[in-house]
């Protein structure tokens, strides 16, 4: 346990700048591609990489369980679902003739404005941040414990929600007699 912890600690703290910047590059790069590319398939694939990068972030931030969960569910479930959607509704790609560029430009401007506001807030608001602590090693146990104690209600509600969504989605795409 101790060596595990030490390795993990060293892993986190020794190469964080490089790791952080590399993951950031991955995430933001594939994120940009996912957001801005013309082809939807390319966007889906780069989303894959973005999600992986997010998992890396979670590791850096000390929750490996979340990283794995991310990969399994987000990548392995949601992304696959998106892929299904793409494939089911595939059509010959139409280059939209009219409003591509200026629409992206407009959207980009709005988002940039919002980003500017956010950035300004981030860098000027005095966040109440505590001293840097070592994250817990092996966080499965605490998560499991918290799920059934502190976060019991959200846990149950989430389960209900899942059920509802399943049923609802199934209902929405049922075959209709035409």
């Amino acid at each position: 346990m101790n060596t595990d912890t030490a390795i993990q600690t060293v892993a986190i703290w020794q190469g964080p700048n490089i790791a952080f910047w590399m993951i950031t590059l991955l995430v933001l790069g594939s994120g940009a591609v996912a957001a801005l590319s013309r082809s939807i398939v390319v966007a889906a694939f780069s989303l894959f990489f973005t999600l992986l990068g997010m998992a890396g972030y979670y590791v850096l931030l000390g929750s490996s369980f979340l990283a794995v969960t991310q990969v399994i569910i987000y990548v392995g479930g949601i992304l696959v679902l998106l892929m299904f959607g793409i494939l089911l509704t595939a059509r010959p790609m139409q280059r939209d003739p009219k409003d591509t560029h200026w629409l992206y430009l407009l959207a980009g401007t709005l988002s940039a404005a919002l980003f500017v506001v956010l950035a300004h807030l981030i860098w000027t608001v005095p966040w109440r941040a505590g001293p840097i602590q070592n994250p817990p090693v092996g966080d499965v146990r605490p998560i499991g414990h918290a799920l059934l104690t502190t976060y019991l209600l959200p846990f149950e509600v989430a389960g209900m929600t899942l059920l509802l969504c399943l049923v609802g989605a199934a209902y929405l795409v049922r075959r209709r007699e035409r």
């Binding site: 709005l110 988002s111 404005a113 919002l114 506001v117």
Partner: peptide, 12 residues
């Protein structure tokens, strides 16, 4: 887009 614009204004 209009919603985002509104959000922008309000947040500002």
């Amino acid at each position: 887009m209009l919603t985002v614009l509104g959000l922008l204004i309000i947040s500002s």
